[in-house]
């Protein structure tokens, strides 16, 4: 019997903050110049969602499928799992999320709206993912970048999902990014990182707005 109640969050932290933050610098360097390109993809997705050309929902879902697969394999599995064995169980969830986005792309399940509270909230979350996260890094080399690092990818994804309408397939796209946001918040809190609140807060806002606008989103 394991006495779980005797453990604190810090007891589950297997690595030092220095090792954790250096992961992003190593990851960005290993895939250069992708850290410059994936935020551009994020901006392009925002433009697609705003302009809404024919097939925009399919393109956005397909792009997010690629980004989730890449972040899950490149960062969570290759780089994070060696220092955190729990990440080896989390990485498959990124593959599941990528598969769900592929299904959404094939089914044309996402349709984006031009305005409304959900759209503006989603835009704010996407802005946090594309601009806020890189600015929080100690150095440009160690920036957490949308499409490269899991936190801004999850927050940006929630932003895009908020701006979309859709049925049950869209609803299925929320749990993995929300779970990641909660998990990363717990990790950063155990590390004493000041931005620990950000991802869980983003997830909370996304879920609250999605629920509040549920009827509208099904329309």
């Amino acid at each position: 019997m394991v006495e779980w109640w005797t453990y604190s969050a810090e007891d589950f932290l297997l690595f030092s903050p220095r090792v954790y933050w250096r992961l992003f610098a190593l990851h960005n360097a290993a895939f250069h110049p992708l850290p410059l390109l994936t935020p551009a993809v994020g901006l392009a997705l925002a433009l697609l969602a705003a302009v809404r050309p024919p097939g925009h929902g399919r393109w956005i879902a397909a792009a997010l499928a690629v980004l989730w697969a890449f972040v899950g394999w490149g960062f969570v599995w290759q780089r994070y799992a060696p220092i955190n064995w729990a990440a080896a169980w989390i990485a498959p969830l990124f593959a599941v999320q990528a598969a769900l986005f592929l299904a959404a792309a094939a089914a044309g399940a996402l349709r984006f709206r031009r305005s409304g509270p959900a759209v503006w909230t989603g835009a704010a979350l996407l802005a946090v993912a594309l601009v806020g996260y890189p600015l929080m890094a100690d150095s440009r080399a160690a920036a957490e970048v949308f499409g490269m690092a899991p936190d801004p990818t999850a927050v940006g994804t929630l932003g895009l999902l908020l701006a979309a309408r859709g049925g049950w397939l869209r609803a299925l796209l929320f749990p993995v990014p929300v779970l990641w946001c909660l998990a990363t918040g717990a990790t950063l809190w155990a590390m004493g990182a000041p931005q620990a609140w950000l991802a869980p807060a983003a997830a909370g806002v996304a879920v609250a707005v999605a629920v509040a606008c549920a009827r509208e989103n099904r329309a």
Binding site: L14, F15, V19, L26, P82, I83
Partner: peptide, 12 residues
Amino acid sequence: WITFNVGDDPVL
């Protein structure tokens, strides 16, 4: 514990 868990970081 913790101190040697540096992954593949060559410097560390």
